[in-house]
Write a protein that binds this DNA or RNA. Structure first.
Lengths: 191, 191
DNA sequence: TTTTCAATATGAGACGTTGCGTATTGACAA
DNA sequence: TTGTCAATACGCAACGTCTCATATTGAAAA
C-alpha cells in the first residue's frame, strides 16, 4: 500500500512543459514524447499520470487557465457578458487557445473523451453564462426563454473562430457578441 | 507528354470508399491506407491524386455533399435561413458531418490547410448567408450592419455542435437559430 | 530501535504497431 | 516515350507497452 509517492516536481514539470510547448509550437507538434523530452521526465512518468494526451492537456488547461476566468455579476447582462467574453477571448489568443484546439482534436477522434471534455470543462463554463442569463431574466432584463440555447450563441462563435481564426477573437468581437446576444435574448422588436 | 491516363474508375472508387468509410466508422479510423485497402486501390494511386488526407476529404465532401445544399431566395430572411439551415444541419447528421469533423482535425493541425479549407469551402458557404442578409437589408427587413458578423452567428453554433453534439443539430435547432439571428439582426428593441 | 519487506515511482531503453509519405520496379496503355 | 498501374519496400514519427535496475516510502518484524 505505501510505496514511493509521486514526485510533485514531476507533476509540475510535465504541466509546465505542456504549456510551454503548445504555446511556442502550437498543437501540431505536441506529443507525449516531445513533452517528455522537453521536461526531462520519462515517458512512463507521464503515462502513469495521464492515460492519453487529451487527459494531459485537459489537466494542463485546468491548471493554468480555467481558474483565472472571471465569474462576473455586475447587475447588467451586457456588462457580465462583456467582462466574461473579453477575458475569455484574451485567454484564447494565448496558450489557452492552443490547448483548446488540442482538446478539440482529441474530442473529434474519441467520443468518450469528448464526453469527459464536455462535463469537465465545457459544461462548467456554460453554467457560468447560464447563471448570468438566469439572473438577467429574474431582473426582467430579458425574457427567460431557452437560456441553454443562448449559451450556444455565446460559445458557438468562439469555437468557430478558435478553429479557423483565433486573432478575430479580440475585444471588439467580444463586445459585438455581447450586444448581439443581448439583442437576441430580448426577443423580436415587435413585442 | 500524354502517357497513360488515370483510370476514372479509381477516382470514383477512392471518393466512394472515403465516403463510406467515414460514414460507417467515423473519422477516427479514417486513414489513407484504410481507404486504399477498402477500395482495392493502391495507396500510391491515392497519393498521385491527393497530397494529403485533408485534400482527399475536401474533395470527397465537395463531390458528395456541397452541391446539394440549397441557395434559397424566398423574399424573407427567416425563410431563407430556415431553408438553408434545415438542409445544412440534416447533412451534418450524415456523412457530411463526419467529413467536416475530419476537415476540422486537419485544419487544426495544419495552418496552410486551414486556409485552403476556409477559401474553398467555408467562405463560399458564408457568402450564401451574406447574400441572404444583404438582400434582407435592401428590402429593409433588417438594419444592414456587419453582415459578416451575423454569418458567424449562423455558422458558429453549427460548428460548436459539430464538435460536441451533432444530434443537437435538428430541425428545431435550425428554426430557433434562424429566429434568433433574425432577432439579433433587427437590432435592440428600443429603437 | 533497527531491520526487513512489500509496494510504488523513477529513468533508461527497447519493443511492436500504426500511419505517414516516398521510392523502386516492371507491366501496360496512349 | 511518357505517365499510370499494382506490388512492395523503405524511413520516419509517435503511439502505447514492457522490462530492468534503482530509489523511496510505510508498516511489520526482530
Amino acid at each position: 500500500m505505501p510505496g514511493r509517492p509521486r514526485d510533485p516536481a514531476l507533476d509540475a514539470a510535465i504541466l509546465r512543459a505542456t504549456f510551454e510547448f503548445v504555446e511556442e509550437e502550437g498543437y501540431r507538434r505536441l506529443s507525449i514524447e516531445g513533452i517528455a523530452a522537453r521536461s526531462g521526465v520519462h515517458k512512463q512518468a507521464i503515462y502513469r499520470r495521464y492515460r492519453s494526451k487529451g487527459e494531459l492537456v485537459l489537466a494542463a488547461l485546468g491548471r493554468f487557465a480555467a481558474e483565472r476566468l472571471p465569474t462576473p455579476d455586475t447587475g447588467s447582462l451586457r456588462d457580465d457578458l462583456v467582462t466574461l467574453l473579453t477575458a475569455t477571448f484574451a485567454a484564447q489568443r494565448g496558450a489557452s487557445g492552443q490547448l483548446n484546439r488540442a482538446l478539440a482534436v482529441e474530442a473529434l477522434q474519441d467520443e468518450r473523451f469528448a464526453a469527459r471534455l464536455w462535463t469537465e470543462l465545457i459544461e462548467p463554463r456554460r453554467a457560468v453564462v447560464r447563471a448570468m442569463i438566469d439572473r438577467a431574466a429574474e431582473r426582467g432584463e430579458i425574457t427567460g426563454a431557452n437560456p441553454d440555447f443562448f449559451v450556444d450563441l455565446v460559445y458557438g462563435p468562439m469555437w468557430y473562430r478558435l478553429l479557423f481564426d483565433i486573432p478575430a477573437l479580440d475585444d471588439s468581437y467580444a463586445a459585438r457578441l455581447a450586444d448581439t446576444v443581448l439583442a437576441a435574448a430580448r426577443g423580436p422588436r415587435t413585442a
